[in-house]
Design a protein around this nucleic acid. Structure first.
Lengths: 240, 240
DNA sequence: AGGCGGGGAAACGTCGGATGTCTCGGGTCA
DNA sequence: TGACCCGAGACATCCGACGTTTCCCCGCCT
């Protein structure tokens, strides 16, 4: 095992053992390198990796700190999987995204707060207002779309789920999506689907919320490639 | 943006643009550093990070190569999320794992090959044989458990799903689980649940497979903490 | 007394070179 | 023809020096 790996595993182990806790400031590079028995260069290679993984936060002129280690923070670096995987064949990613977001909608229906529902409603209203303007602010509309989905994800009350959704439905994917959606003028349809999801959430109906979300995402996927992609679209026989 | 970030983004961009393709050998560190306008030390910090993220593979004495960039490879480094998140509260992780594996079972039911089914059957037979022996090889039983779940995940035919499952149901989590399961002598029950899953797969019945998998994982979770954890356990009203 | 700004110490950021270690492949020899 | 040797090439590690940024204390002004 290389020195760099020793550094990475050593720091991770020390964090797990409680030597360093979230928010703590790590010893300076010189001391840390000495205590691990490596040179400062090797230490820095390891810390650089830990920084990109979201485990530590390095601030020039200040010091190195352990992050809060919450799931979204730790899962954020996975966003680049979308870049590489989504290049040729984005279907697998959309399938996973749909699975995650449908579950989030289902869970959120019984957990979301009234405040969050009101906030989501305001977002949709704003989107509707912008859509009426002549020079539509597409950037802002995409912003609202992301915020709307985020509210739902967050209120599923599962940080791991939130992290995965943010990684798989982040800016990279959305950027590609919105170009397609716009070219076919699907803004209105998207808004209606969002409204349907919100309605189900307001009714605190998990199955309805899940189905509305699935319906929305399938619509998005179909504007990318004509046919349903992977299996039977999350078992939309839900009606019984 | 630091030089290290420039290196990371630069290499990622070059891969995305097709300058380097999976399996390609990168230029030697000296040349690469020069072409990016950074010192070799800074370059190495970036490459070290890319290596840990599973994007490149550095081999001493040989060279640096672009990995195959498939989802499991790219998602593998996220396994440590289980270490940090699962420390205090593993419920959120188990919830996500259950969601992922249930979907995998559902998809696999219509896609798994006869060969894979036969292989899975042999694994369960071997586990049953070992369980009868006096000095039970717990390590091997855990090995078989992982292999069984992996066969199902792989035959869902979605590499992204496979990567996530391997990250969230990897050795770390399983190690903790098997200790608990063993202490309460749940080996037999686990085997029966596995057999039920396999039976549903052989019948090519997606809903049955999903439900059997959910039932199995809920059993596992309950041996960790008495009560159902996160919501209604994947809507097991599936009967109807 | 309180607010503001300068300056120095501390810590990370970057660089260059030197040396160690490992892998691969060509050449040699039996 | 096959096994072995060895040297070139490439990554691994270390060291020392200097640049850049941040924080914070101290002194000054109001």
């Amino acid at each position: 095992m290389s020195r760099t790996d020793e550094v990475v595993n050593g720091i991770k182990r020390m964090i797990l053992e409680g030597t360093f806790k979230p928010g703590d400031r790590l010893p300076i590079e010189k001391d840390l390198a000495e205590s691990l028995g490596v040179s400062r260069g090797s230490l820095r290679e390891g810390m650089s990796a830990l920084s990109i993984l979201g485990i530590v936060n390095i601030r020039q002129g200040d010091g190195t700190y352990v992050t809060n280690l919450d799931a979204p923070q730790l899962l954020a670096p996975m966003g680049f999987v979308v870049d590489f995987q989504g290049q040729g064949d984005p279907r697998h990613i959309h399938t996973v995204r749909r699975l995650l977001e449908c579950e989030a909608a289902r869970l959120a229906a019984t957990r979301i707060t009234d405040e969050a529902l009101a906030q989501a409603g305001e977002l949709l209203d704003e989107a509707a207002r912008i859509a009426g303007q002549s020079p539509q602010d597409h950037e802002r509309i995409m912003e609202i779309d992301i915020a709307f989905h985020r509210i739902i994800a967050v209120h599923a009350d599962n940080p791991v789920l939130v992290g995965l959704i943010e990684a798989f439905a982040g800016r990279t994917l959305r950027g590609r999506l919105w170009r397609s959606l716009h070219e076919e003028g699907a803004d209105r349809r998207t808004h209606d689907e969002h409204a349907a999801i919100l309605k189900a959430l307001v009714a605190r109906d998990p199955e309805r919320a899940r189905i509305r979300m699935a319906n929305h995402l399938i619509g998005v996927e179909e504007s990318l490639y004509g046919l349903p992609d992977d299996g039977d679209a999350n078992a939309e026989a839900g009606g019984s």
